[in-house]
Every structure is written in C-alpha cells, then in structure tokens.
Amino acid sequence: MPATAAQSSPGGDVAAFNYRHLYYFWVVAKEGGFARAAQRLDMAIQTISAQVRELEKSLGHQLLKPQGRGVTLTEAGDVAYARAEEIFQIGQRIPQEVMQAATVPTIRLSVGLSDGISKLAAHKLLGPALQESQLKLVCHEGEIEQLTAELALHHLDLVLAGQPAAHNSNLRLSSRLISSSDVGWFGPSQWVHKADVDQFPQSLSRLPVLLPTAHSPLRASLDRWFDELQIQPRVVGEFEDSALMSVFGAGGLGVFPASLIGRDDLSLMKGLKLLGQSEVKEEIYALYTRRSSHHPLVQSILQTAQA
C-alpha cells in the first residue's frame, strides 16, 4: 500500500495524503469503533486513533464522531468512507488478479472496429486470431477518427474500417485493403418472396429497407447504386451499427444489405433469406502502426487476408 500521495487542495497548495491513515480510518469505520479495529489490526488503540486524527487534520474535516461505545461517520466521513471502500476493495483483488495473470499466459489483441463496417465481415477477418487458444480479445467500436487516434497512441493493435487512414505524417499509420466483398440483401421470410427475388433489385422500391447511416462508406456506394438503377428505396430505418441493423432486420423490420463475406454468420439468425446480390462491394481496410505490425496475431490476420 503506498504511504503517501500528493494531492492538490482547492487553493492550489499540495498537501500530503497518507493512504495508510486512510486504511486505518476505513477499518475503524467498518468495525464501528477503535477497540474492535485495534483488535483486528493487532495494534494499540492509541496508535490507530492518532493515525485517524492525522487523516482528519490533512483533510480539514472531522470524519468520525462518538456514538455510544463506538463511533459513527460524519457527513464528510461518509464521503471518505465510500471512496476508501472502492480503493481497498480493489486493492484486495490485486493479489488474485496478479497471480492469475502470471500463471495463465495470454496473448492480448486490442481491435478497433469502425461503427460503419459489417461486424459479421469483421468476425470473419479476425478468424486467424480467434484460433489462438490463449487469446484475450478486446474490441472497441467507434468513429474512425477516434480509433486511429487510439491506434497511434498504441492503445489498439489493429483497426478495421471502411476506408484507409487519412494521411497524417504525425500519426504514421499504415493501411491495407484486406477485403472487397460483394454485398447481398437479406430479410426475413415475411418480406422475401419469390416475386421479390425475381424482381430484385427493383423490389427494393416497395419493400421496407434498412440502411447504414450517411457516415458509412458503404452507404455512399449504395446511394450511387440506387441512382444508377433509378431505384427509390422505401427506407424505414438507418443504423450506425451494422450488427444492430442485422438484428432489427432479422426481427422483421425490413430487408438490409450485408457483406457476403459474413454470410455464414447470418445463418445464426433464423429465418433470414437472400433477396439478391448487388453490384456494390464493401471494402474493409486494416489500419496498423509499425510497432503493431510485429504483433503475431496482426501478422496472421494480414497474411491470411492477403492469401
């Protein structure tokens, strides 16, 4: 347990804050009195009392007040106790977590997923990493600007996005196209009938359609495709997250586009049928840094995609 830490007071002065004093206060508050705390800590009551007084002096407020044969918390003490409870509860977990980390080898892979790309396709592309038995996978979703900033700071090992990284000499990021897959249209059986399949893609003008939001590169490609075919889709929903769009589509809201590279995973959603295949392709880029390119799982993902 650290003995002291520097803490800025509201006036700007730096006061010494002693975590050992905080620990004694925490035990006294949990035990309801100095006598029981002294018995638990195997220390003299006077020593513990002096330590708690030092804590109150450093904080500038009384934390405990007498109640019967014991003590109770003041309002200021309630606040201090709540924070001390968080600190020391976490501290009690440290030995177990350290032991677990030391005895169970893991290979950590932190991946950022741009919110506009197909999550089913991303799952497929991460397949080589998922075969690692000691894998600890951490996935973050967000906008590409946020994810590339995290990648540049080495908080992420890899980012999958629908576009390459913007040129920025300060970030020093590399991009590689790892997937260019045809986009199919899927929907629940209540919307996908033989006539709709036969008349695809014109049938999209009368069926309820779900689309990615405008920030997605795929949406721009779909809009151009609609314009070329002079189709006015009946849009009933727009989604930033492609996985959420698939869930609502499978639930009956409408038909939706999905990269065919993730078609196998769509089979997990019962009742979905293929309406048709468009001429639109969804491109997915892998973004990485020079350092993260040496990560064995990043290398495996890139090499598999290239092959």
Rank of each mutant, 00 (worst) to 15 (best):
M1W: 12
A3C: 14
T4S: 15
T4L: 15
Q7D: 15
S9E: 15
S9W: 14
G11V: 06
G12E: 09
D13G: 13
A15Q: 15
F17S: 08
N18L: 10
H21I: 07
A29Y: 01
K30G: 03
E31A: 06
G33C: 06
G33V: 11
A35K: 11
A37R: 00
Q39W: 07
M43I: 07
M43Y: 05
I45T: 13
I45G: 02
I48C: 04
S49H: 12
A50K: 13
S58G: 10
L59T: 03
P66Q: 01
R69M: 10
G70N: 00
D78F: 11
D78W: 15
Y81I: 01
E85R: 05
E86V: 07
I94R: 05
I94C: 04
P95K: 03
Q96I: 15
E97W: 12
V98W: 05
V98S: 00
Q100E: 12
A101N: 06
L109F: 05
S110G: 12
V111E: 00
V111I: 05
G116M: 11
K119F: 11
K124W: 14
G127E: 12
A129M: 13
E132Y: 06
K136A: 15
V138H: 10
V138D: 13
I144M: 09
Q146P: 05
Q146K: 10
A149K: 10
E150S: 09
H154S: 12
D157G: 09
L158Q: 08
L158T: 02
L160A: 01
A161N: 02
A166R: 13
H167M: 11
S169L: 14
L171N: 04
S174M: 09
W185E: 04
W185T: 11
W185D: 06
S189Y: 13
S189P: 09
Q190E: 14
W191P: 03
D198Y: 09
L204D: 05
R206T: 08
L211V: 14
P212V: 03
A214H: 14
H215F: 11
H215Q: 14
R219M: 09
S221I: 12
S242A: 10
A243K: 11
M245A: 02
S246F: 08
V247A: 12
F248A: 10
F248W: 11
A250Y: 08
G252Q: 04
F256H: 04
S259E: 07
S259I: 08
S259D: 12
L266C: 04
L268Y: 14
M269Y: 15
K270W: 09
K273A: 09
L275R: 03
G276N: 02
E279T: 08
V280D: 01
E282G: 13
Y285H: 04
A286W: 03
A286H: 04
L287S: 00
L287M: 00
Y288P: 00
Y288T: 00
Y288Q: 01
T289N: 01
R291Q: 05
H295L: 00
H295W: 00
L297E: 00
V298A: 00
Q299I: 12
S300I: 09
L302E: 02
T304K: 09
